[in-house]
Design a binder for these strands. Sequence first.
DNA 1: TGAAATGTTGGGGCG
DNA 2: ACGCCCCAACATTTC
Length: 490
Amino acid sequence: MADPSATAPALVWFRNDLRVSDHPALDAAVAAKRPILPLYILEEDAPGDMGLGAASRWWLHHSLSALSADLKALGAPLYLTRGRAETLIPDIAKRLGAETIFWNRRYEPWAIETDRQIKATLKDAGHAVESFNGALLYEPWEVKTKQGGAYGVFTPFWKAECALGDPPYPSQAPKALPGADWGPLPPPEALEDWGLLPSAPDWAGGLRDAWTPGEAGARARLADFLDDGVLSYQEARDKPAMPGTSRLSPHLHHGEISARQIWHWSRERLRESGAAAYETGIWAFLREISWRDFNHNLLFHNPTMPHKNYQRKFDVFPWREDARSLKAWQRGLTGFPLVDAGMRELWQTGYMHNRVRMLVASFLVKDLLIDWREGEAWFRDTLVDADLANNVGNWQWAAGCGADAAPYFRIFNPMTQGERFDPEGAYVQAWVPELKDLPKKFIHAPWTADAATLAKAKVELGRTYPHPMVDHKQARQQALDAYSHVKGAA
DNA sequence: TGAAATGTTGGGGCG
DNA sequence: ACGCCCCAACATTTC
Protein backbone atom coordinates (compact mmCIF):
# COMPACT_ATOMS: atom_id res chain seq x y z
CA MET A 1 0.00 0.00 0.00
CA ALA A 2 2.95 2.26 0.65
CA ASP A 3 4.33 1.58 -2.81
CA PRO A 4 3.33 4.58 -4.96
CA SER A 5 4.10 2.74 -8.18
CA ALA A 6 1.26 0.31 -7.42
CA THR A 7 -1.19 3.05 -8.29
CA ALA A 8 0.82 4.66 -11.07
CA PRO A 9 -1.61 4.53 -14.00
CA ALA A 10 -1.17 2.87 -17.35
CA LEU A 11 -1.87 4.88 -20.47
CA VAL A 12 -3.49 3.10 -23.43
CA TRP A 13 -3.22 5.18 -26.57
CA PHE A 14 -5.98 4.23 -29.05
CA ARG A 15 -5.40 4.92 -32.74
CA ASN A 16 -6.70 2.71 -35.55
CA ASP A 17 -7.79 0.06 -33.05
CA LEU A 18 -11.15 1.38 -31.87
CA ARG A 19 -12.37 -1.75 -30.09
CA VAL A 20 -12.15 -3.37 -26.66
CA SER A 21 -11.79 -7.04 -27.65
CA ASP A 22 -8.59 -8.55 -29.07
CA HIS A 23 -6.81 -5.33 -28.21
CA PRO A 24 -3.27 -6.39 -27.19
CA ALA A 25 -2.33 -2.98 -25.76
CA LEU A 26 -5.43 -2.84 -23.58
CA ASP A 27 -4.92 -6.47 -22.50
CA ALA A 28 -1.34 -5.70 -21.48
CA ALA A 29 -2.48 -2.70 -19.46
CA VAL A 30 -5.04 -4.87 -17.69
CA ALA A 31 -2.37 -7.47 -16.97
CA ALA A 32 -0.20 -4.73 -15.42
CA LYS A 33 -2.90 -4.26 -12.76
CA ARG A 34 -2.78 -0.49 -12.81
CA PRO A 35 -5.52 2.11 -13.14
CA ILE A 36 -6.03 2.66 -16.85
CA LEU A 37 -6.41 5.86 -18.82
CA PRO A 38 -7.65 5.13 -22.37
CA LEU A 39 -6.71 8.02 -24.59
CA TYR A 40 -7.50 9.17 -28.12
CA ILE A 41 -5.75 12.09 -29.79
CA LEU A 42 -7.15 13.80 -32.85
CA GLU A 43 -3.76 14.33 -34.48
CA GLU A 44 -3.51 17.67 -36.20
CA ASP A 45 -0.76 18.82 -38.55
CA ALA A 46 1.36 15.74 -38.02
CA PRO A 47 4.30 16.06 -40.42
CA GLY A 48 3.86 13.79 -43.41
CA ASP A 49 0.30 12.83 -42.52
CA MET A 50 -1.77 13.01 -45.66
CA GLY A 51 -4.85 13.96 -43.65
CA LEU A 52 -8.28 12.54 -42.93
CA GLY A 53 -10.91 12.76 -45.61
CA ALA A 54 -14.39 14.00 -44.85
CA ALA A 55 -15.92 10.51 -45.07
CA SER A 56 -13.30 9.11 -42.71
CA ARG A 57 -13.96 11.95 -40.29
CA TRP A 58 -17.66 11.07 -40.27
CA TRP A 59 -16.82 7.44 -39.56
CA LEU A 60 -14.27 8.34 -36.90
CA HIS A 61 -16.84 10.41 -35.01
CA HIS A 62 -19.26 7.51 -34.75
CA SER A 63 -16.59 4.95 -34.07
CA LEU A 64 -15.17 7.03 -31.21
CA SER A 65 -18.64 7.55 -29.87
CA ALA A 66 -19.18 3.77 -29.78
CA LEU A 67 -15.76 3.08 -28.23
CA SER A 68 -16.36 5.78 -25.64
CA ALA A 69 -19.60 4.14 -24.56
CA ASP A 70 -17.97 0.69 -24.37
CA LEU A 71 -15.03 1.94 -22.29
CA LYS A 72 -17.28 3.91 -20.00
CA ALA A 73 -19.40 0.81 -19.38
CA LEU A 74 -16.23 -1.10 -18.47
CA GLY A 75 -15.23 1.58 -15.96
CA ALA A 76 -12.49 3.54 -17.74
CA PRO A 77 -13.91 6.36 -19.89
CA LEU A 78 -12.02 7.50 -22.97
CA TYR A 79 -10.04 10.72 -22.57
CA LEU A 80 -10.17 12.86 -25.72
CA THR A 81 -7.75 15.57 -26.72
CA ARG A 82 -6.29 16.98 -29.91
CA GLY A 83 -3.05 18.40 -31.20
CA ARG A 84 0.41 17.02 -31.74
CA ALA A 85 0.92 13.58 -30.19
CA GLU A 86 4.68 14.25 -29.81
CA THR A 87 3.97 16.85 -27.15
CA LEU A 88 0.65 15.59 -25.76
CA ILE A 89 1.66 12.02 -24.93
CA PRO A 90 4.78 12.90 -22.90
CA ASP A 91 2.89 15.69 -21.18
CA ILE A 92 -0.05 13.49 -20.20
CA ALA A 93 2.28 10.69 -19.11
CA LYS A 94 4.16 13.12 -16.89
CA ARG A 95 1.09 14.73 -15.32
CA LEU A 96 -0.43 11.35 -14.57
CA GLY A 97 2.82 9.85 -13.34
CA ALA A 98 2.14 6.99 -15.74
CA GLU A 99 4.37 4.00 -15.44
CA THR A 100 3.83 2.43 -18.86
CA ILE A 101 2.33 3.63 -22.11
CA PHE A 102 0.74 0.94 -24.27
CA TRP A 103 -0.24 1.08 -27.92
CA ASN A 104 -0.83 -1.06 -30.99
CA ARG A 105 1.48 -0.37 -33.91
CA ARG A 106 0.64 1.50 -37.08
CA TYR A 107 2.38 1.38 -40.42
CA GLU A 108 2.04 4.70 -42.25
CA PRO A 109 5.55 6.13 -42.70
CA TRP A 110 4.70 9.39 -40.88
CA ALA A 111 3.10 7.44 -38.03
CA ILE A 112 6.08 5.15 -37.63
CA GLU A 113 8.31 8.22 -37.34
CA THR A 114 5.95 9.91 -34.86
CA ASP A 115 5.74 6.80 -32.70
CA ARG A 116 9.49 6.25 -32.77
CA GLN A 117 10.07 9.79 -31.61
CA ILE A 118 7.46 9.59 -28.85
CA LYS A 119 8.88 6.31 -27.64
CA ALA A 120 12.34 7.88 -27.34
CA THR A 121 11.00 10.92 -25.47
CA LEU A 122 9.01 8.77 -23.07
CA LYS A 123 11.95 6.48 -22.33
CA ASP A 124 14.22 9.47 -21.69
CA ALA A 125 11.63 10.69 -19.20
CA GLY A 126 11.70 7.37 -17.37
CA HIS A 127 8.47 5.83 -18.68
CA ALA A 128 8.16 2.37 -20.15
CA VAL A 129 6.59 1.85 -23.58
CA GLU A 130 5.08 -1.34 -24.92
CA SER A 131 3.77 -1.72 -28.46
CA PHE A 132 1.89 -4.60 -30.07
CA ASN A 133 0.49 -5.98 -33.28
CA GLY A 134 -3.19 -5.14 -33.16
CA ALA A 135 -3.85 -4.72 -36.86
CA LEU A 136 -2.29 -7.45 -38.98
CA LEU A 137 -2.24 -11.24 -39.16
CA TYR A 138 1.56 -10.99 -39.08
CA GLU A 139 3.97 -8.09 -38.79
CA PRO A 140 5.78 -6.92 -41.94
CA TRP A 141 9.08 -8.18 -40.54
CA GLU A 142 7.65 -11.61 -39.76
CA VAL A 143 6.82 -12.52 -43.38
CA LYS A 144 10.12 -12.90 -45.18
CA THR A 145 11.40 -14.67 -48.29
CA LYS A 146 13.96 -17.45 -47.89
CA GLN A 147 16.63 -14.83 -48.61
CA GLY A 148 15.24 -12.76 -45.76
CA GLY A 149 13.81 -10.01 -47.97
CA ALA A 150 10.31 -8.61 -48.38
CA TYR A 151 7.87 -10.15 -50.85
CA GLY A 152 7.03 -8.24 -54.01
CA VAL A 153 4.56 -10.79 -55.36
CA PHE A 154 1.33 -11.65 -53.63
CA THR A 155 0.93 -15.39 -54.15
CA PRO A 156 4.22 -16.38 -52.50
CA PHE A 157 3.43 -13.88 -49.75
CA TRP A 158 0.06 -15.56 -49.19
CA LYS A 159 1.70 -19.00 -49.10
CA ALA A 160 4.25 -17.70 -46.61
CA GLU A 161 1.53 -16.34 -44.33
CA CYS A 162 -0.35 -19.63 -44.51
CA ALA A 163 2.88 -21.47 -43.72
CA LEU A 164 3.27 -19.39 -40.56
CA GLY A 165 0.06 -21.05 -39.38
CA ASP A 166 -2.92 -19.51 -37.66
CA PRO A 167 -2.13 -16.13 -36.08
CA PRO A 168 -2.65 -15.84 -32.29
CA TYR A 169 -6.20 -16.50 -31.15
CA PRO A 170 -8.07 -13.23 -30.44
CA SER A 171 -8.66 -12.28 -26.84
CA GLN A 172 -12.01 -11.42 -25.27
CA ALA A 173 -12.87 -7.95 -24.06
CA PRO A 174 -11.89 -7.29 -20.42
CA LYS A 175 -14.74 -7.81 -17.94
CA ALA A 176 -14.00 -4.49 -16.25
CA LEU A 177 -11.37 -1.78 -16.39
CA PRO A 178 -10.02 0.09 -13.37
CA GLY A 179 -10.30 3.73 -14.41
CA ALA A 180 -7.54 6.20 -13.64
CA ASP A 181 -8.11 9.55 -11.97
CA TRP A 182 -8.19 12.36 -14.57
CA GLY A 183 -7.51 14.93 -11.88
CA PRO A 184 -4.01 15.97 -13.00
CA LEU A 185 -5.14 16.51 -16.60
CA PRO A 186 -6.91 19.37 -18.31
CA PRO A 187 -10.61 18.58 -18.78
CA PRO A 188 -11.13 16.31 -21.78
CA GLU A 189 -12.53 17.69 -24.99
CA ALA A 190 -16.00 16.80 -26.20
CA LEU A 191 -16.27 14.71 -29.35
CA GLU A 192 -19.04 17.00 -30.55
CA ASP A 193 -16.62 19.93 -30.56
CA TRP A 194 -14.24 18.27 -32.99
CA GLY A 195 -16.38 19.09 -35.99
CA LEU A 196 -15.92 15.66 -37.53
CA LEU A 197 -19.50 15.56 -38.75
CA PRO A 198 -20.55 17.52 -41.80
CA SER A 199 -22.87 20.43 -41.25
CA ALA A 200 -24.31 22.84 -43.78
CA PRO A 201 -24.85 20.89 -45.90
CA ASP A 202 -25.28 17.61 -44.08
CA TRP A 203 -24.30 15.26 -46.88
CA ALA A 204 -23.95 12.23 -44.61
CA GLY A 205 -27.47 10.87 -45.11
CA GLY A 206 -26.27 8.21 -47.54
CA LEU A 207 -23.56 7.17 -45.08
CA ARG A 208 -25.98 6.88 -42.18
CA ASP A 209 -28.23 4.62 -44.21
CA ALA A 210 -25.39 2.39 -45.33
CA TRP A 211 -23.28 1.90 -42.22
CA THR A 212 -23.14 1.21 -38.50
CA PRO A 213 -19.67 2.26 -37.31
CA GLY A 214 -18.36 0.73 -34.10
CA GLU A 215 -17.29 -2.64 -32.74
CA ALA A 216 -20.83 -4.02 -32.46
CA GLY A 217 -21.63 -2.93 -36.01
CA ALA A 218 -18.44 -4.58 -37.25
CA ARG A 219 -19.25 -7.89 -35.58
CA ALA A 220 -22.78 -7.83 -36.91
CA ARG A 221 -21.45 -7.22 -40.40
CA LEU A 222 -19.06 -10.18 -40.19
CA ALA A 223 -21.78 -12.43 -38.73
CA ASP A 224 -24.15 -11.50 -41.58
CA PHE A 225 -21.46 -12.18 -44.13
CA LEU A 226 -20.58 -15.57 -42.64
CA ASP A 227 -24.28 -16.47 -42.42
CA ASP A 228 -25.10 -15.96 -46.06
CA GLY A 229 -22.63 -13.84 -48.03
CA VAL A 230 -19.63 -16.09 -47.96
CA LEU A 231 -21.32 -19.11 -49.56
CA SER A 232 -21.60 -17.33 -52.88
CA TYR A 233 -18.64 -15.04 -52.29
CA GLN A 234 -16.47 -16.15 -55.15
CA GLU A 235 -19.02 -15.33 -57.85
CA ALA A 236 -21.16 -12.73 -56.09
CA ARG A 237 -18.25 -10.51 -55.09
CA ASP A 238 -17.83 -9.53 -58.73
CA LYS A 239 -21.44 -8.39 -59.10
CA PRO A 240 -21.71 -4.81 -57.88
CA ALA A 241 -25.51 -4.92 -57.71
CA MET A 242 -25.39 -7.80 -55.21
CA PRO A 243 -24.44 -7.63 -51.53
CA GLY A 244 -21.70 -10.11 -52.37
CA THR A 245 -18.73 -8.61 -50.55
CA SER A 246 -18.15 -8.47 -46.81
CA ARG A 247 -18.17 -4.64 -46.66
CA LEU A 248 -15.87 -4.91 -43.66
CA SER A 249 -13.17 -2.58 -45.00
CA PRO A 250 -14.13 0.57 -43.04
CA HIS A 251 -14.53 -1.44 -39.84
CA LEU A 252 -11.12 -3.02 -40.42
CA HIS A 253 -9.47 0.28 -41.19
CA HIS A 254 -10.64 1.80 -37.92
CA GLY A 255 -9.80 -1.37 -36.05
CA GLU A 256 -13.34 -2.04 -34.87
CA ILE A 257 -12.63 -5.65 -35.73
CA SER A 258 -9.21 -7.24 -36.05
CA ALA A 259 -7.79 -9.30 -38.90
CA ARG A 260 -7.14 -12.07 -36.38
CA GLN A 261 -10.78 -12.09 -35.28
CA ILE A 262 -11.86 -12.33 -38.90
CA TRP A 263 -9.37 -15.13 -39.52
CA HIS A 264 -10.35 -17.27 -36.57
CA TRP A 265 -14.08 -16.64 -36.59
CA SER A 266 -14.20 -17.46 -40.30
CA ARG A 267 -12.24 -20.66 -39.83
CA GLU A 268 -14.43 -21.68 -36.90
CA ARG A 269 -17.53 -21.21 -39.00
CA LEU A 270 -15.92 -23.34 -41.69
CA ARG A 271 -15.22 -26.16 -39.23
CA GLU A 272 -18.80 -26.07 -37.93
CA SER A 273 -20.32 -26.10 -41.40
CA GLY A 274 -18.02 -28.41 -43.35
CA ALA A 275 -19.74 -27.57 -46.66
CA ALA A 276 -17.45 -27.60 -49.66
CA ALA A 277 -18.92 -24.39 -51.08
CA TYR A 278 -18.15 -22.76 -47.77
CA GLU A 279 -14.53 -23.84 -48.02
CA THR A 280 -14.10 -22.01 -51.35
CA GLY A 281 -15.77 -18.84 -50.11
CA ILE A 282 -13.91 -18.66 -46.82
CA TRP A 283 -10.49 -19.12 -48.38
CA ALA A 284 -11.20 -16.60 -51.13
CA PHE A 285 -12.21 -14.17 -48.38
CA LEU A 286 -9.19 -14.85 -46.15
CA ARG A 287 -6.98 -14.39 -49.18
CA GLU A 288 -8.32 -10.83 -49.42
CA ILE A 289 -7.49 -10.31 -45.74
CA SER A 290 -3.95 -11.38 -46.60
CA TRP A 291 -3.88 -8.82 -49.45
CA ARG A 292 -4.37 -6.23 -46.72
CA ASP A 293 -1.32 -7.59 -44.89
CA PHE A 294 0.57 -7.59 -48.21
CA ASN A 295 -0.23 -3.92 -48.83
CA HIS A 296 0.90 -2.99 -45.31
CA ASN A 297 4.03 -5.03 -45.84
CA LEU A 298 4.77 -3.17 -49.07
CA LEU A 299 4.25 0.23 -47.50
CA PHE A 300 6.40 -0.67 -44.51
CA HIS A 301 9.29 -1.75 -46.70
CA ASN A 302 8.73 1.02 -49.30
CA PRO A 303 7.87 4.16 -47.35
CA THR A 304 7.97 6.36 -50.47
CA MET A 305 5.13 4.42 -52.10
CA PRO A 306 2.45 7.05 -51.34
CA HIS A 307 4.31 9.45 -53.60
CA LYS A 308 6.56 7.37 -55.85
CA ASN A 309 5.99 4.61 -58.36
CA TYR A 310 7.02 1.24 -56.92
CA GLN A 311 8.35 0.43 -60.38
CA ARG A 312 10.54 3.46 -60.97
CA LYS A 313 10.58 2.96 -64.73
CA PHE A 314 7.06 4.46 -64.65
CA ASP A 315 8.59 7.79 -63.61
CA VAL A 316 8.79 8.75 -67.29
CA PHE A 317 5.12 8.05 -67.95
CA PRO A 318 3.57 11.04 -69.76
CA TRP A 319 0.58 11.78 -67.51
CA ARG A 320 -1.82 14.49 -68.66
CA GLU A 321 -2.79 17.53 -66.62
CA ASP A 322 -6.51 17.79 -67.16
CA ALA A 323 -8.53 19.34 -64.34
CA ARG A 324 -11.81 19.25 -66.28
CA SER A 325 -11.58 15.55 -67.04
CA LEU A 326 -10.55 14.79 -63.48
CA LYS A 327 -13.60 16.65 -62.24
CA ALA A 328 -15.93 14.80 -64.62
CA TRP A 329 -14.53 11.52 -63.30
CA GLN A 330 -14.90 12.62 -59.68
CA ARG A 331 -18.52 13.69 -60.15
CA GLY A 332 -19.55 10.62 -62.11
CA LEU A 333 -20.13 12.49 -65.37
CA THR A 334 -17.87 10.59 -67.78
CA GLY A 335 -20.71 9.34 -69.96
CA PHE A 336 -19.77 5.70 -69.25
CA PRO A 337 -22.63 4.41 -67.06
CA LEU A 338 -20.76 1.83 -64.99
CA VAL A 339 -17.90 4.26 -64.27
CA ASP A 340 -20.36 6.98 -63.31
CA ALA A 341 -22.41 4.61 -61.14
CA GLY A 342 -19.28 3.71 -59.16
CA MET A 343 -18.14 7.30 -58.70
CA ARG A 344 -21.60 8.29 -57.51
CA GLU A 345 -21.87 5.35 -55.12
CA LEU A 346 -18.58 6.56 -53.68
CA TRP A 347 -19.74 10.14 -53.34
CA GLN A 348 -23.04 9.23 -51.74
CA THR A 349 -22.06 6.38 -49.43
CA GLY A 350 -18.30 6.69 -48.94
CA TYR A 351 -17.88 3.27 -50.49
CA MET A 352 -17.53 1.62 -53.88
CA HIS A 353 -17.80 -2.01 -54.87
CA ASN A 354 -14.38 -3.52 -55.52
CA ARG A 355 -15.06 -4.64 -59.10
CA VAL A 356 -16.08 -1.07 -59.94
CA ARG A 357 -13.04 0.38 -58.13
CA MET A 358 -10.85 -1.53 -60.57
CA LEU A 359 -12.86 -0.22 -63.50
CA VAL A 360 -12.88 3.44 -62.48
CA ALA A 361 -9.16 3.25 -61.71
CA SER A 362 -8.44 1.77 -65.11
CA PHE A 363 -10.57 4.49 -66.69
CA LEU A 364 -8.79 7.36 -64.93
CA VAL A 365 -5.29 6.07 -65.48
CA LYS A 366 -5.68 4.59 -68.96
CA ASP A 367 -8.62 6.18 -70.77
CA LEU A 368 -7.92 9.65 -69.31
CA LEU A 369 -4.14 9.24 -68.79
CA ILE A 370 -4.41 11.00 -65.43
CA ASP A 371 -1.82 10.25 -62.76
CA TRP A 372 -2.84 7.52 -60.28
CA ARG A 373 -1.91 9.92 -57.44
CA GLU A 374 -4.95 12.04 -58.36
CA GLY A 375 -7.18 9.01 -58.05
CA GLU A 376 -5.53 7.96 -54.81
CA ALA A 377 -6.09 11.41 -53.33
CA TRP A 378 -9.76 11.43 -54.33
CA PHE A 379 -10.38 7.97 -52.88
CA ARG A 380 -8.55 8.95 -49.70
CA ASP A 381 -10.84 11.93 -49.30
CA THR A 382 -14.10 10.18 -50.07
CA LEU A 383 -13.83 6.57 -48.90
CA VAL A 384 -14.97 5.57 -45.42
CA ASP A 385 -12.39 2.79 -45.62
CA ALA A 386 -9.58 5.10 -46.78
CA ASP A 387 -6.44 3.32 -45.69
CA LEU A 388 -3.09 4.56 -46.90
CA ALA A 389 -1.49 1.14 -47.38
CA ASN A 390 -4.44 -0.40 -49.22
CA ASN A 391 -5.28 2.70 -51.20
CA VAL A 392 -1.75 3.29 -52.45
CA GLY A 393 -1.10 -0.41 -53.02
CA ASN A 394 -4.31 -0.85 -54.99
CA TRP A 395 -3.91 2.31 -57.07
CA GLN A 396 -0.38 1.38 -58.02
CA TRP A 397 -1.62 -2.12 -58.78
CA ALA A 398 -4.32 -0.75 -61.07
CA ALA A 399 -1.97 1.73 -62.73
CA GLY A 400 0.48 -1.05 -63.54
CA CYS A 401 3.36 0.56 -61.65
CA GLY A 402 2.92 -1.31 -58.36
CA ALA A 403 4.14 -4.56 -56.88
CA ASP A 404 2.70 -7.64 -58.58
CA ALA A 405 0.64 -5.15 -60.56
CA ALA A 406 -1.84 -5.68 -63.31
CA PRO A 407 0.11 -5.25 -66.56
CA TYR A 408 -0.36 -1.75 -67.93
CA PHE A 409 -1.87 -3.03 -71.13
CA ARG A 410 -4.73 -4.65 -69.20
CA ILE A 411 -7.22 -1.95 -70.06
CA PHE A 412 -10.81 -2.45 -68.92
CA ASN A 413 -13.59 -1.87 -71.41
CA PRO A 414 -16.42 -0.11 -69.51
CA MET A 415 -19.12 -1.58 -71.75
CA THR A 416 -17.80 -5.14 -71.59
CA GLN A 417 -17.38 -4.93 -67.83
CA GLY A 418 -20.96 -3.71 -67.57
CA GLU A 419 -22.37 -6.52 -69.68
CA ARG A 420 -20.34 -9.10 -67.82
CA PHE A 421 -20.75 -7.98 -64.21
CA ASP A 422 -23.94 -5.90 -64.24
CA PRO A 423 -25.88 -7.74 -66.93
CA GLU A 424 -29.28 -6.58 -65.69
CA GLY A 425 -28.04 -3.00 -65.37
CA ALA A 426 -29.33 -2.92 -61.78
CA TYR A 427 -26.22 -1.23 -60.39
CA VAL A 428 -26.35 1.48 -63.05
CA GLN A 429 -30.08 1.98 -62.47
CA ALA A 430 -29.46 2.41 -58.74
CA TRP A 431 -26.75 5.06 -59.04
CA VAL A 432 -27.44 6.71 -62.41
CA PRO A 433 -31.20 7.16 -62.16
CA GLU A 434 -31.41 9.29 -65.29
CA LEU A 435 -30.76 6.08 -67.28
CA LYS A 436 -33.12 3.82 -65.36
CA ASP A 437 -35.74 3.58 -68.11
CA LEU A 438 -33.27 2.60 -70.83
CA PRO A 439 -33.63 -1.01 -72.01
CA LYS A 440 -30.82 -3.07 -70.49
CA LYS A 441 -29.48 -3.71 -73.97
CA PHE A 442 -28.34 -0.09 -74.08
CA ILE A 443 -27.79 0.72 -70.44
CA HIS A 444 -24.01 0.35 -70.58
CA ALA A 445 -23.73 2.27 -73.86
CA PRO A 446 -26.60 4.75 -74.19
CA TRP A 447 -25.06 6.41 -77.24
CA THR A 448 -25.69 3.23 -79.24
CA ALA A 449 -29.45 3.49 -78.75
CA ASP A 450 -31.62 4.89 -81.53
CA ALA A 451 -33.38 8.22 -81.12
CA ALA A 452 -36.80 6.71 -80.43
CA THR A 453 -35.48 4.49 -77.64
CA LEU A 454 -33.65 7.39 -76.04
CA ALA A 455 -36.71 9.61 -76.23
CA LYS A 456 -38.92 6.93 -74.72
CA ALA A 457 -36.48 6.55 -71.80
CA LYS A 458 -36.35 10.35 -71.44
CA VAL A 459 -32.63 10.38 -72.09
CA GLU A 460 -31.18 13.29 -73.99
CA LEU A 461 -27.45 12.82 -74.44
CA GLY A 462 -25.53 15.96 -73.66
CA ARG A 463 -28.42 17.23 -71.52
CA THR A 464 -29.83 14.65 -69.11
CA TYR A 465 -26.71 12.48 -69.32
CA PRO A 466 -23.28 13.25 -70.85
CA HIS A 467 -21.94 11.99 -74.12
CA PRO A 468 -19.04 9.58 -73.55
CA MET A 469 -16.08 11.85 -72.76
CA VAL A 470 -13.67 9.75 -74.83
CA ASP A 471 -13.80 7.18 -77.60
CA HIS A 472 -12.73 4.13 -75.66
CA LYS A 473 -11.13 2.37 -78.60
CA GLN A 474 -9.09 5.44 -79.43
CA ALA A 475 -8.26 6.13 -75.77
CA ARG A 476 -7.07 2.58 -75.37
CA GLN A 477 -4.67 2.99 -78.29
CA GLN A 478 -3.36 6.27 -76.84
CA ALA A 479 -2.73 4.55 -73.52
CA LEU A 480 -0.76 1.81 -75.22
CA ASP A 481 1.28 4.43 -77.10
CA ALA A 482 1.98 6.29 -73.85
CA TYR A 483 3.06 3.05 -72.24
CA SER A 484 5.74 2.60 -74.90
CA HIS A 485 7.66 5.41 -73.14
CA VAL A 486 7.88 3.22 -70.07
CA LYS A 487 9.05 0.24 -72.04
CA GLY A 488 11.69 2.39 -73.66
CA ALA A 489 12.84 3.59 -70.24
CA ALA A 490 13.19 0.07 -68.88
C1' DT B 1 -8.73 -9.70 -60.62
C1' DG B 2 -8.55 -7.97 -69.71
C1' DA B 3 -9.36 -7.01 -74.28
C1' DA B 4 -8.37 -7.12 -78.98
C1' DA B 5 -6.05 -9.23 -82.70
C1' DT B 6 -4.84 -13.26 -84.79
C1' DG B 7 -4.94 -18.20 -85.57
C1' DT B 8 -7.38 -22.70 -85.82
C1' DT B 9 -11.10 -25.77 -86.33
C1' DG B 10 -15.19 -27.72 -87.89
C1' DG B 11 -19.94 -27.63 -89.61
C1' DG B 12 -22.90 -26.42 -93.29
C1' DG B 13 -24.22 -24.32 -97.74
C1' DC B 14 -23.23 -24.64 -102.29
C1' DG B 15 -21.49 -25.42 -106.96
C1' DA C 1 -18.72 -37.11 -103.26
C1' DC C 2 -15.76 -33.40 -103.06
C1' DG C 3 -13.56 -29.02 -102.56
C1' DC C 4 -14.33 -24.47 -101.49
C1' DC C 5 -15.90 -20.65 -98.92
C1' DC C 6 -18.00 -18.56 -95.00
C1' DC C 7 -18.18 -17.89 -90.39
C1' DA C 8 -19.05 -18.93 -85.68
C1' DA C 9 -16.73 -20.86 -81.82
C1' DC C 10 -12.87 -21.54 -79.52
C1' DA C 11 -7.73 -21.10 -78.63
C1' DT C 12 -3.52 -18.50 -78.73
C1' DT C 13 -0.89 -14.46 -78.95
C1' DT C 14 -0.11 -9.75 -78.31
C1' DC C 15 -0.58 -5.33 -76.30
